[in-house]
């Protein structure tokens, strides 16, 4: 079950990768940040799902708003000369690592419990 998101990721990747679509190079940085925000939302959703606290409306709205907000904030930061890009990278990166470590623990715990049950 847990591999399903990975399959989805691969499918979505292929949809855009194969035609070779791209945007003007000036938005590359903001697009990268939006991707990072999306990644953060996904891991947050997985963690919430494992914890049994998954809300689909929070998840979807969070994904859309976070990606747009991250890009928008970075752009705003560039315009007013404050490096909000780095702030977003640090905040999102920290959260991604936190979520990943929690997911890892849950999965480990679950596996250990399953082994004990079976063994």
């Amino acid at each position: 079950m847990i591999w399903l998101p990975l399959v989805g990721l691969a499918i979505g990747f292929q949809i855009y990768w194969l035609p070779g679509l791209s945007l003007p190079s000036s938005v590359a940085a903001y697009l990268s940040l939006a991707t990072l925000a999306g990644l953060d939302s996904i891991f947050g959703g997985i963690r919430a799902g494992i914890e049994g606290k998954f809300h689909d409306d929070i998840f979807f709205s969070g994904f859309v708003v976070n990606t747009l907000l991250a890009a928008a904030l970075a752009y705003l930061g560039d315009q007013i000369g404050v490096d909000l890009f780095l702030a977003a990278v640090v905040a999102l990166g920290g959260r991604i690592f936190l979520n990943l470590s929690l997911i890892r623990r849950y999965l480990l715990t679950e596996t250990r419990l399953r082994w004990r049950r079976e063994g």
Binding site: L4, G12, I42
Partner: peptide, 18 residues
């Protein structure tokens, strides 16, 4: 999560290309 992962994959591909 899988549904959004598809969107994320598209975003990732676009970002990489750009």
């Amino acid at each position: 999560v899988t549904a959004l992962c598809i969107v994320l994959g598209m975003l990732l591909a676009l970002s990489l290309r750009t």
